[in-house]
């Protein structure tokens, strides 16, 4: 005989069970209303780095400068990873490593999600201009690899004190001979494309790098070490008024490294820009 108490319990459990699993999710509904674009293949297939032939610092190198940073386009700091990609060779005199710029890979994470707000893309004209003017890292005569306070300038020349001089601004750059149209697009400084808010920013940029003593692998395939980086940017103009104030970038020590990988003589910038995550996936830590 089922008592009324048991009956009520069974009824209550039935009600609860019937509503179990009822759920409507707003983000899933948004996916239904506004389907996200299909994921693009990030490049997981085999890569070809040519025939690497390096001896000491000699040979051809694919280089990336990984800078873990924060950027604050809206006041709050967001996680930013900025990777400068180069192809490098020792200079003919053997006293410098010449890094020729290939591209820059930027990712910004806000509230756990990737965002394009403040994200930059380097136009082809600027890539070509920076490739033509290699960034030089002196090689110490003792055979080690390290360098301090190397200044890499975009759209600037002849700074009296390259490390410390204030950068020209949109209010005072006119007539400033230090500002050069490096990418020859008739706009002051260099032109950087911004994904969001979308537009072009005409700007100058200074990066100051310190390469801590590097470790060359025994097989001469890898050269890696810690990197210190400081980035200053100043907007001289923009196609969108919202871009006239570059968000400050603060590079952190943790995770900021330089990585060189020996590659074949035919290895190209395009290959590096496409494959760098796989090329450096096995870099010694």
């Amino acid at each position: 005989m089922v008592s009324s108490r048991h009956l009520l319990t069974i009824l209550a459990l039935g009600v609860v069970a019937a509503s179990c699993g009822w759920k409507t999710d707003g983000l899933e509904r948004l996916d239904e209303l506004y389907p996200p674009p299909p994921e693009t293949d990030g490049g997981t297939g085999p890569i070809d780095i040519g025939t690497p032939m390096c001896s000491g610092y000699g040979g051809n190198w694919a280089v990336r400068l990984v800078q873990e940073a924060s950027i604050s386009p809206l006041g709050q700091p967001w996680k930013m990873t900025l990777i400068d990609l180069f192809l490098a060779q020792k200079s003919q005199a053997g006293t410098e490593m010449e890094l020729r710029f290939c591209n820059q890979d930027v990712s910004i994470i806000a509230s756990g999600q990737s965002t394009n707000l403040g994200k930059t893309e380097v136009p082809q004209a600027l890539r070509s201009a920076l490739y033509q003017a290699p960034f030089k890292v002196p090689l110490p005569s003792d055979g080690t690899f390290h360098a301090e306070d190397l200044v890499w300038l975009w759209g600037l020349q002849n700074l009296a004190n390259p490390l410390t001089d204030p950068l020209p601004t949109k209010d005072n750059y006119l007539g400033d001979a230090r500002v050069v149209d490096q990418d020859t697009d008739t706009q002051p400084g260099v032109t950087m494309h911004i994904l969001s808010p979308m537009g072009d920013r005409y700007m100058v940029r200074r990066a100051v790098f310190t390469f801590a003593t590097g470790a060359l692998s025994l097989d001469n395939q890898w050269l890696t070490g810690d990197l210190t980086s400081r980035i200053d940017e100043s907007a001289l103009g923009a196609t969108n008024n919202l871009l006239l104030t570059p968000a400050p970038i603060t590079v952190k020590a943790e995770g900021t490294v330089y990585e060189f990988r020996c590659v074949g003589a035919t290895y190209t910038c395009d290959s590096l820009a496409r494959d760098h995550r796989q090329v450096f996936a096995d870099a010694p830590k």
């Binding site: 707003g26 983000l27 948004l30 999600q113 990737s114 394009n116 707000l117």
Partner: peptide
């Protein structure tokens, strides 16, 4: 259960 979701876009780009 109702989960609220919000997204913000700049053009085609999701920013929030």
């Amino acid at each position: 259960q109702v989960n609220f979701g919000l997204r913000a876009y700049q053009g085609q780009t999701k920013i929030f």
